[in-house]
Design a protein around this nucleic acid. Structure first.
Lengths: 238, 238
DNA sequence: CTTATTACACTTGTATACTAGCATACACGT
DNA sequence: ACGTGTATGCTAGTATACAAGTGTAATAAG
């Protein structure tokens, strides 16, 4: 049998559109509450409505858009309820995951985690943007799930964290890069030294504590008040 | 070939198709590995391909179908990796949730839980089907999440549990209705009496323990061997 | 001026024709 | 008997026309 070159599958219009629109929403380029038009997007991307509609169906699943038939499609406003549930889910699962990682974690992924730390440090020194650091942060946490062979769990968290991640981006200060970087170093150290007893305080500090300032963000009458939607909405059951 | 249901209300064609096809897959009426055709489904449901395509896009997100362009769409085989991650997620989140429920739980939902118990008992006496009991089981666990105001978390678990629920259905014996019913009673009692210390053993017994027999199901050369897919597949990165 | 009505522009929902790529069968040449 | 080209029928991907409902603004009636 002969081995031949494999061509990178040129992605189709649908996946391209998904990446593009989702990115626009997650970076707040498309603002919470803003109406979006299938036709508009289709024209901007130079494709037809059909793939756009399938993209919107996906985004709807992730609570990123709300569709009202015969009226319009809107970027969802940030729902505190969804933020809270995402925080709960992340904290709970990542806490358990770190405990697993303390028992057993592959060396190669641990190495990648350390490499990620170096990249973060580099970006910090270079005064990188919030957006850039957020990307590295995501990649860092993903690596932990990958190491524990829980990639799909990470995917589920990601889908649930759309509102959580937007509010993080909104609160620019967050906890400073420096602080987050310091905590990431602690996480790696915990895994490396199998210091299981340090897991709980770490989660409390790294995930739960920072959220408190975000609550202020939507409870106060801030400049971003119109980005939030306090009405409770049940998810679709089907 | 596939056989499908008939529609009740004049709901959205897309939502109708989604319910129908998903149900067919989850009940194993559409078998793991089986090819499905957009045109075929469209004709059986008496609608066009467009809404069907949007349905398939959703099912793909839930790991229920795999689409190969220009080739075909197939019901996913059961992936042990996905089962394991679903069990991990359910056990971890429900454990934490029960602890929350022990601290605070609304009376009206607690009442609904007790009503659900009675329905389950009734169904047990009437020798209901596996399918019927599974429905009640789902509704029971959902109520707990609703009571703790974590409905979206339940939704996330549901999306991740498609393979887990199929393997449950496959292992007919499961742990008998009687056993499950007994454990559901214990759960209600734990919430009712705020017996926080009993949560951990309950989770171990009700969720973690029963899974062990399922692993045999796909590891052995059983009659259902061709329903399983042991190849590891990473989720789509977005 | 106020109020009711109507026309219209806009949205998403649906159906359908067409495009492009893969897999199989089969004929053909070696 | 075997490998190769090719016709053909299948698939999902896409574009587009049309249907049906909504909100709004112009318009007519009071």
């Amino acid at each position: 049998m002969m081995t031949i070159l494999k061509r990178y599958t040129s992605e189709n219009n649908r996946d391209f559109a998904y990446r593009t629109v989702k990115r626009a929403i997650m970076t707040l380029e498309l603002e919470p509450g803003q109406p979006i038009s299938e036709i508009d997007i289709a024209e901007q991307l130079g494709i037809s409505r059909t793939p756009i509609r399938e993209v919107i169906a996906r985004l709807k699943e992730e609570y990123l858009v709300e569709v009202t038939p015969q009226v319009g499609t809107y970027v969802t406003k940030i729902q505190p309820q969804l933020v809270e549930e995402a925080v709960f889910t992340r904290a709970t699962l990542e806490r358990e995951l770190l405990k697993l990682a303390c028992e057993d974690f592959p060396d190669d992924i641990l190495t990648e985690l350390k490499i990620s730390l170096m990249r973060q440090e580099q970006l910090f020194k270079q005064q990188g943007t919030e957006q850039q650091f957020h990307e590295l942060d995501k990649a860092f946490h993903y690596l932990i799930f990958k190491g524990a062979q829980k990639e799909h769990v990470w995917g589920a968290i990601t889908r649930l964290s759309t509102h959580y991640n937007r509010i993080r981006l909104l609160s620019e200060i967050e906890f400073s890069f420096e602080n987050a970087l310091k905590q990431h170093k602690r996480i790696v150290e915990i895994i490396d030294t199998k210091a299981l007893s340090l897991v709980n305080p770490m989660i409390d500090e790294h995930i739960l504590a920072p959220t408190k300032q975000w609550y202020k963000l939507y409870q106060d009458d801030s400049e971003f008040n119109h980005y939030f939607d306090n009405a409770y909405k049940s998810p679709d059951y089907l």
